[in-house]
Amino acid sequence: MEKLVIATRRSQLALWQSEYVKSLLQEHYPDMQIELQEFVTKGDKILDVPLAKIGGKGLFTKELEVAMLEGTAHLAVHSLKDVPTQFEDGLQLAAVTKRFDPRDALLSNKYASIDDLPQGAIVGTTSLRRRMAIMMLRPDIVLKDLRGNINTRIAKLNAGEYDAIILAATGIQKLKIEHEVKYFAPISTDMMIPSMGQATLGIETTNDPKVLEIVKVLNDENAHIESTIERSFVDTLQGGCQVPIGVKATIIDENSIRVQAIVGLPDGSESISEDITVSIKDYEKAGRQLAQNFIDQGARELLDRAEKLAFK
């Protein structure tokens, strides 16, 4: 294949990620022409409504998927946490890249940590998962919606609209903008369990054998194992970004994987959580088995209630 087209969102972070993938591919295929095709997705355009109320994270992938199905692009680079667990016919998750820092992070110009926030502090996040975690840690905090790209969100913090905001640590680190706020504090996964696939890039393609062969070089085995557990957990629960779900698989050594998971209500008043160690040889079924354990404890009913609260 002489020319490869990568579909990407136009945000600064999305372009960084697509350029990163392009550079990896060019290391392996120096003679191949690789170019980016930029899109503004529906999720990028609607900034005044929480994602849970307008259809979820698939809003960030739809336009890119149409381009691939129509043949104008060969692959798309996504933040894996934004990729639904089910794909349209003709599309698939072909590779996942090496994982960056999976933690969430607190950004503030006044306070160095969640513990340092004063009673009634205003914290910005629209993520139902992050809302649940914060309310479980600090029920006195006042939560305020926060949408827009990373730069927009930081600008709102710097304008004094929030005492602190919560973002994925990896986006700040990739763009090297930690210095734009006084405090950038990654949060332990013991305090705030990340979203499935957080800090991993997902490479989506059509079923074209030539493209599938090309992108194989991007796949990281550890990230594949961890994300398989996380995505199968969410898929089995039939949950998406409309409900608060956190799940993080971490390879401990060549034999074992730690899996942290939580589901609950956005206000943190009820939750089900587990922190287990599983054998690495069982990774393909570990997520489903853990999800079934959650279902047996009433997780689907809890998530149904969470979704109703989110759409109020």
Rank of each mutant, 00 (worst) to 15 (best):
V77R: 05
A121Y: 13
A95K: 00
H78G: 09
R130P: 09
L117A: 14
M135G: 10
T85Q: 10
T126H: 11
I122W: 15
A94P: 05
G90A: 02
A121G: 14
D89L: 08
A105D: 01
L93K: 04
L117K: 13
H78T: 10
T126F: 13
M135N: 12
A105H: 06
L128W: 06
D116R: 15
Q86N: 10
A73D: 00
G71F: 02
M68Q: 03
V77I: 10
L75T: 10
L91N: 02
A133Y: 07
V83Y: 00
Q92A: 07
G71M: 03
T126D: 12
G90C: 01
R99N: 04
D82S: 09
R129W: 15
V123C: 05
P118K: 12
A121T: 14
G120M: 08
L106T: 11
T97L: 12
S79H: 13
T72M: 02
L93P: 07
H78M: 08
A105Y: 03
L69W: 07
I134G: 05
A133R: 05
R131A: 08
D101Y: 05
T72V: 12
P102V: 04
D82W: 08
G124F: 13
D116K: 15
D101A: 06
A76K: 02
R131T: 10
P102W: 02
Y111H: 13
P139T: 03
Q86L: 12
L128M: 04
I134C: 04
G71I: 07
T72H: 05
L137N: 09
G124Y: 14
V77A: 06
L91Y: 01
D101F: 07
D89K: 15
R130Q: 13
P139D: 01
L69M: 10
K110R: 15
A95Q: 00
M132Y: 02
S108V: 09
D116M: 13
Q92M: 03
R130S: 13
E70K: 15
R138I: 10
A105T: 06
H78P: 07
I134L: 14
R138L: 06
R130Y: 08
G120A: 08
D104R: 10
S79N: 15
T97S: 11
K98E: 09
D115V: 13
R99I: 09
V123Q: 04
H74V: 04
A112Q: 11
V123H: 02
K98M: 08
L69P: 08
M136F: 07
Y111D: 01
Y111Q: 07
R130L: 12
Q92L: 03
H78I: 10
P118F: 13
Q92V: 02
R129E: 12
E70C: 12
D82I: 09
A121N: 12
P102M: 03
V96K: 01
S113F: 09
S108I: 08
A133T: 07
L128D: 01
S79W: 05
K81G: 15
N109W: 11
R138W: 07
K81R: 14
G71Q: 04
S113D: 04
F87C: 01
G90M: 00
L80A: 04
K110Q: 14
Q92F: 00
V123L: 06
L128K: 06
V96T: 05
Q92S: 04
L117M: 11
L137G: 11
